[in-house]
């Protein structure tokens, strides 16, 4: 479905069904340079299992209009406005990577908009390798390649896509290559500059954090530092899984989301 937010069209995947306004809303937020399709193995499932599932294209991403927003705080303010525009009340927020930072900030800055947050590939700080940041600034294909390389666990670099015929590595790289020039850099720079400050102390809603043992972009150690500052948090470990966990192990993420959101 499409909604308007700040005068721009926002594209939202709803799992192929019309949003049922009587169901609890779940807003899924993608990571840097990506779009709603990273949730394609979860959105349709949630939409048929008791939720109003909405995978959002952030401004300037996917099929949404507008320009990408320059900071995590501004992205969080935009998400809170979008939730108001959707009009279904407080939502469960599911965020991946940059989307997890946005979710943290929405929960801290706009608690009235949030029921619960589920963070995949999360950390209190996301410093970006300078070579990656430089390649993204120059709009080089090296940026999608490095994110793809570091974003997947060892197993995902060999095989294991449960969807017959799909190859994860090129799927991730192609998705990132489709981003408009400047989008990946904008997002990585926003992650790189993010400082959590006292955000953990300001979050009142329940939190689920999911960490992959082979995550090189938000390593388990960095996730632990985030979790240490949070209260009412449920930490889930996934062995042998990298940063792109909702694509690497979609079945496990589906089960985990159903468990966390009910």
């Amino acid at each position: 479905m499409n909604i308007e937010c700040r005068g721009e069209t926002v594209n939202i995947a709803t799992g192929g069904v019309e949003v049922d306004r009587d169901l609890p809303p779940v807003v899924l937020l993608h990571g840097a340079g990506m779009d709603r399709t990273v949730w394609s193995q979860q959105t349709r499932y949630l939409a048929h299992h008791g939720f109003a599932a909405m995978a959002v294209d952030l401004p300037g991403h996917g099929e949404s209009g507008g320009e990408p927003l320059p900071s995590i705080a501004e992205m969080a303010d935009w998400v809170a406005e979008a939730i108001t525009e959707i009009g279904l009340g407080p939502a469960h927020l599911v965020g991946h990577s940059m989307g997890s930072l946005i979710s943290l900030e929405v929960a801290a800055r706009h608690p009235e908009a949030v029921e619960r947050i589920v963070l995949l590939g999360a950390a209190a700080a996301m410093p970006v390798h300078p070579d990656l940041l430089g390649a993204a600034e120059r709009n080089e294909v090296l940026a999608p390649q490095l994110i793809t390389s570091w974003g997947h666990g060892t197993r995902a670099h060999i095989a294991g896509n449960p969807t017959p015929g799909l190859w994860m590595r090129s799927g991730c790289q192609a998705l990132l290559e489709r981003a408009n020039d400047g989008v990946i850099f904008n997002d990585l720079a926003a992650c790189n500059a993010y400082e959590a400050g006292d955000v953990a102390a300001r979050i009142a809603c329940p939190i689920t954090v999911v960490v992959g043992s082979e995550d090189k972009m938000t390593p388990p150690r960095a996730t632990s530092q985030l979790v240490a500052g949070l209260s009412d948090v449920d930490l889930k470990h996934l062995d042998g899984v990298g940063h792109m966990m909702m694509i690497e192990v979609p079945d496990r993420i589906r089960e985990l989301l159903l468990d966390a959101l009910h």
Partner: peptide
């Protein structure tokens, strides 16, 4: 068949393949 599909997609650098 899915192994062959994924393997050829990997060698070609495609997002997927259908045999």
């Amino acid at each position: 068949v899915a192994v062959l599909e994924e393997r050829i997609a990997a060698l070609e650098g495609g997002v997927g393949a259908v045999c």
